[in-house]
Amino acid sequence: MPTVYVTRRVHFNAAHRLHNPARSETWNQETFGLCNHPNWHGHNYVLEVTVAGEPNAETGFVLNLRDLKAILEQRILSKLDHKNLNLDVDFLQGIIPTTENLVVAIWRELEDALPAGRLYRIRLYETESNYVEYYGD
C-alpha cells in the first residue's frame, strides 16, 4: 500500500516572553529584542499536524480526521489557546517558548496519542512569514 500524508490545520492565540533567566537583562534584550518585553506579547499561531500511513482497507482513511481533531483539541488547543506559554502550559514549564521549542513540545504531546498512522511533521506558523517544522528526533 502507498504511504499517504494527512494534514490537519488548527489555530490558537497565545502570549509569551522570550527570556533566559540564567542570562543578564542586557543579554536577553540584545538576544530577543521586542520578544523579551516584560509584559509579554502574543501571536496568532497556525499549527499543521501531518500524519503518515497506509489507508485502511475498510475505511480508506490513514486516520479519521475527526479523531485527529479531537486529539488536537484535548492535547494541544485546550492547553495553548488564549494562554500565556510561559506561565500556563504544563508541558512548557522551564522551556523558553520559542517556536522551535514549541514544535518539539507539541510533538511530544502528540506522538503517543494517535490511534492510527504515525506522526510525520509538525509545522507551526508564528506569523504569516515565519514558520518552523519538526519531523521528530
Rank of each mutant, 00 (worst) to 15 (best):
10 V>Q: 02
24 S>L: 10
87 L>P: 00
13 N>G: 12
14 A>R: 11
66 R>E: 03
9 R>E: 10
125 Y>I: 01
37 H>Q: 13
126 E>R: 06
121 R>H: 10
7 T>K: 15
124 L>T: 09
58 E>M: 04
103 V>E: 14
64 N>R: 06
102 L>P: 14
92 L>R: 09
69 K>L: 01
120 Y>G: 02
131 Y>D: 08
93 Q>A: 13
130 N>D: 12
51 V>Y: 08
95 I>L: 09
88 D>S: 02
27 W>R: 03
30 E>N: 15
93 Q>D: 09
50 T>G: 06
25 E>D: 15
76 I>H: 11
47 L>C: 07
116 A>P: 02
45 Y>N: 05
76 I>Y: 12
137 D>T: 02
35 C>P: 08
48 E>P: 01
89 V>H: 01
28 N>M: 09
18 L>D: 05
133 E>Q: 15
81 D>S: 01
107 W>S: 04
71 I>W: 01
75 R>A: 03
25 E>W: 02
102 L>K: 13
115 P>F: 08
30 E>T: 12
32 F>V: 07
23 R>Q: 15
114 L>C: 09
3 T>Q: 11
92 L>H: 09
106 I>C: 04
89 V>A: 06
28 N>P: 12
80 L>I: 06
91 F>D: 05
90 D>P: 10
25 E>L: 14
45 Y>R: 04
36 N>D: 15
112 D>M: 12
137 D>Q: 11
117 G>V: 03
50 T>H: 10
43 H>K: 07
9 R>N: 05
109 E>Q: 15
90 D>G: 13
126 E>W: 07
92 L>D: 07
120 Y>R: 11
55 P>E: 06
137 D>P: 14
127 T>R: 02
72 L>G: 05
25 E>P: 00
110 L>T: 05
17 R>S: 08
44 N>F: 00
65 L>H: 03
110 L>C: 05
123 R>E: 14
42 G>W: 11
59 T>M: 00
132 V>L: 08
18 L>M: 11
9 R>S: 10
8 R>E: 05
114 L>Q: 07
118 R>D: 12
116 A>V: 01
18 L>Y: 12
87 L>A: 13
58 E>I: 00
32 F>A: 10
136 G>V: 04
115 P>C: 09
15 A>M: 08
61 F>S: 00
113 A>T: 04
4 V>D: 03
24 S>A: 06
110 L>Y: 10
82 H>N: 06
79 K>V: 00
123 R>Y: 01
84 N>S: 05
44 N>A: 13
26 T>F: 07
71 I>Y: 03
75 R>T: 01
98 T>G: 12
34 L>I: 11
52 A>W: 05
30 E>F: 02
21 P>K: 08
96 I>C: 10
122 I>K: 14
37 H>L: 04
122 I>W: 13
133 E>L: 06
132 V>R: 15
107 W>L: 03
7 T>H: 09
78 S>A: 06
59 T>A: 00
53 G>E: 11
117 G>A: 06
85 L>A: 07
26 T>R: 15
89 V>M: 04
57 A>Y: 02
136 G>I: 06
111 E>H: 11
52 A>P: 03
137 D>L: 08
135 Y>Q: 14
78 S>N: 13
